[in-house]
Lab assay of single mutants.
Amino acid sequence: RIRTTFTSAQLKELERVFAETHYPDIYTREELALKIDLTEARVQVWFQNRRAKFRK
């Protein structure tokens, strides 16, 4: 699998949801994935990585 490059619009939306909750449920992730045209798996991994970055 190649590395996913996020558009600024996708990042803006991901960060907006992250500001609300660091642990979005499956429904939130799936809805977000559809909205920004990514797979739910990519959204899930983005949140994992974002939480790791947040803890640092």
Results as ranks from 00 to 15, higher is better:
residue 56 K to V: 08
residue 12 K to W: 06
residue 39 T to S: 12
residue 51 R to M: 05
residue 48 Q to R: 12
residue 43 V to H: 03
residue 42 R to H: 15
residue 23 Y to K: 04
residue 14 L to C: 03
residue 40 E to L: 06
residue 30 E to A: 14
residue 3 R to A: 14
residue 6 F to D: 03
residue 15 E to H: 02
residue 22 H to P: 13
residue 27 Y to L: 14
residue 51 R to I: 02
residue 11 L to V: 13
residue 23 Y to Q: 03
residue 44 Q to M: 08
residue 6 F to N: 05
residue 40 E to D: 06
residue 31 E to W: 10
residue 31 E to T: 11
residue 31 E to C: 09
residue 35 K to N: 06
residue 22 H to S: 04
residue 24 P to R: 03
residue 7 T to I: 01
residue 18 F to E: 02
residue 1 R to V: 09
residue 32 L to S: 03
residue 30 E to G: 08
residue 54 F to D: 13
residue 11 L to Y: 03
residue 27 Y to R: 15
residue 9 A to M: 09
residue 52 A to K: 08
residue 52 A to V: 10
residue 55 R to D: 08
residue 35 K to W: 02
residue 37 D to G: 14
residue 53 K to Q: 13
residue 6 F to P: 07
residue 8 S to V: 11
residue 56 K to E: 14
residue 2 I to R: 10
residue 55 R to Q: 13
residue 10 Q to K: 05
residue 30 E to V: 10
residue 53 K to L: 12
residue 33 A to H: 06
residue 44 Q to C: 11
residue 31 E to P: 04
residue 39 T to Y: 02
residue 20 E to G: 06
residue 11 L to A: 08
residue 49 N to M: 09
residue 40 E to A: 10
residue 8 S to R: 10
residue 15 E to V: 03
residue 39 T to V: 05
residue 30 E to T: 11
residue 25 D to Y: 03
residue 29 R to D: 00
residue 29 R to S: 04
residue 44 Q to G: 11
residue 18 F to M: 01
residue 48 Q to Y: 07
residue 53 K to W: 07
residue 48 Q to T: 11
residue 37 D to F: 00
residue 48 Q to P: 01
residue 32 L to I: 07
residue 11 L to D: 10
residue 42 R to G: 12
residue 21 T to I: 06
residue 9 A to K: 09
residue 44 Q to H: 14
residue 52 A to C: 06
residue 24 P to F: 02
residue 22 H to E: 09
residue 19 A to F: 06
residue 21 T to D: 05
residue 28 T to Q: 15
residue 21 T to F: 05
residue 46 W to C: 03
residue 51 R to V: 05
residue 30 E to D: 05
residue 23 Y to E: 06
residue 46 W to R: 04
residue 54 F to C: 11
residue 3 R to G: 15
residue 34 L to A: 14
residue 22 H to F: 04
residue 2 I to Q: 06
residue 51 R to Y: 03
residue 56 K to C: 14
residue 11 L to W: 08
residue 22 H to I: 02
residue 35 K to P: 03
residue 33 A to Y: 01
residue 45 V to S: 12
residue 15 E to T: 02
residue 51 R to L: 06
residue 12 K to S: 12
residue 26 I to H: 12
residue 52 A to E: 13
residue 25 D to V: 02
residue 14 L to Q: 01
residue 42 R to N: 15
residue 18 F to R: 06
residue 47 F to M: 01
residue 6 F to H: 15
residue 48 Q to C: 10
residue 1 R to T: 10
residue 31 E to K: 10
residue 8 S to K: 08
residue 51 R to N: 03
residue 49 N to S: 12
residue 2 I to V: 11
residue 52 A to S: 12
residue 55 R to V: 06
residue 17 V to G: 02
residue 29 R to K: 01
residue 49 N to C: 08
residue 54 F to A: 14
residue 43 V to P: 03
residue 53 K to F: 00
residue 20 E to T: 11
residue 21 T to G: 07
residue 20 E to I: 10
residue 56 K to D: 11
residue 45 V to Q: 11
residue 11 L to G: 04
residue 47 F to V: 01
residue 44 Q to T: 11
residue 20 E to R: 10
residue 24 P to E: 01
residue 5 T to R: 10
residue 50 R to N: 00
residue 19 A to H: 11
residue 20 E to C: 07
residue 13 E to D: 00
residue 28 T to D: 05
residue 49 N to K: 13
residue 20 E to L: 11
residue 22 H to W: 07
residue 32 L to V: 09
residue 20 E to P: 00
residue 45 V to K: 13
residue 34 L to E: 14
residue 41 A to S: 09
residue 42 R to A: 15
residue 11 L to E: 15
residue 54 F to E: 15
residue 42 R to E: 15
residue 7 T to M: 02
residue 23 Y to M: 00
residue 55 R to I: 10
residue 50 R to Y: 07
residue 10 Q to N: 03
residue 45 V to N: 14
residue 54 F to L: 14
residue 55 R to K: 12
residue 22 H to R: 10
residue 56 K to A: 11
residue 12 K to A: 13
residue 26 I to R: 14
residue 42 R to Q: 15
residue 25 D to Q: 02
